[in-house]
Write a protein that binds this DNA or RNA. Structure first.
Lengths: 158, 158
DNA sequence: GTTGCTGAGTCTGTCAATCAGACCTAGCCT
DNA sequence: AGGCTAGGTCTGATTGACAGACTCAGCAAC
């Protein structure tokens, strides 16, 4: 039984495009830092262990792609420097980060648990991602999700 | 104001561990194929354009890490071959994939829309990820999520 | 029984990316 | 003038990506 997916082109796949940005070894780790409020080059470098060059490249790429913006700041007694902050596009990566965190926590954590959780600002309870359909049903099991061609789907040329 | 995150070690961070698996350029694209029902080496290769060697490496890594399993199958008139299927660990990546898809669709899609959507098996409506806290509140805006140290958090040694 | 086909790889050589470590630089402070 | 600091850049060695050719097992047709 030939999978239906074989009939469709993937050249405009948005997952592949997203992974051009997110799918480099350190990108999401850098973003984790920014989400955690760490915004400065050296703090990130010390915490993540990413080589300077790579960190500089990643930050530049993320700024260029519109995920981060570079903002000047000045502490008293210091010259002006720059820090990195999330744009709206960057903030919208929260669900991705929380999803990855949830999966990592389940399968890759040390016995004592995850070093990081995320909480709801208003009530303090832990936040998780959920799959939910547009009619409001919760999608409990992974097998209840089925892929299908979207509005931008194109038939394969070959 | 020094970010609180600087006091905590990140050496056991589950996001970093997850990204050791997912954070390679083609991993999630390969998984997209498997979720779409494409399970065979050559189909994946033709659809994704990943070089053979890289695809072979990725598949082997995903099998080794427990995300995929390699299953024998035999079509009539052919010798036995292998296909790749999701383990439970792999199936639990659905939320990650849907989150990445949602973000990519919002910021990186062509004008006509995304080539791929995911639907609820029972009702056919489109499925999205949502952030929701344990008390059941929907977390509407990214800014309503705050990170905090989890049970496995360790103070920094330095 | 030799030739050819197919799916699923491996081998090889080139080129780009990663990494560690040293070096640089602008402005501030002494 | 000399030193400190944040945020880089430069250099050379190692690793990974990639394209294209080659391999290999089993089936099938001649």
């Amino acid at each position: 039984m030939r999978p239906a997916a074989l009939d469709w082109s993937v050249e405009n796949c948005t997952i592949a495009r997203a992974m051009e940005i997110l799918g480099e070894r350190w990108t999401l780790v850098v973003l984790r830092e920014v989400f955690n409020g760490v915004r400065r080059f050296d703090d990130m470098r010390v915490r993540t262990g990413v080589p300077r060059q790579v960190l500089a490249n990643r930050l530049a790429m993320l700024v260029e792609r519109g995920v981060l913006r570079r903002e000047p700041y000045r502490e008293p007694g210091s010259r002006e420097r720059h820090e990195y902050r999330l744009t709206e596009m960057g903030l919208d990566l929260w669900p991705v980060l929380v999803a990855v965190l949830g999966w990592g926590d389940r399968y890759l954590a040390d016995p004592e648990g995850s070093p990081l959780t995320v909480a709801h600002r208003d009530c303090g309870a832990e936040v998780r991602v959920e799959l939910r359909c547009e009619r409001g049903h919760e999608v409990a099991r992974p097998r209840d999700v089925v892929p299908r061609p979207g509005p931008g789907a194109r038939r394969r040329a070959d």
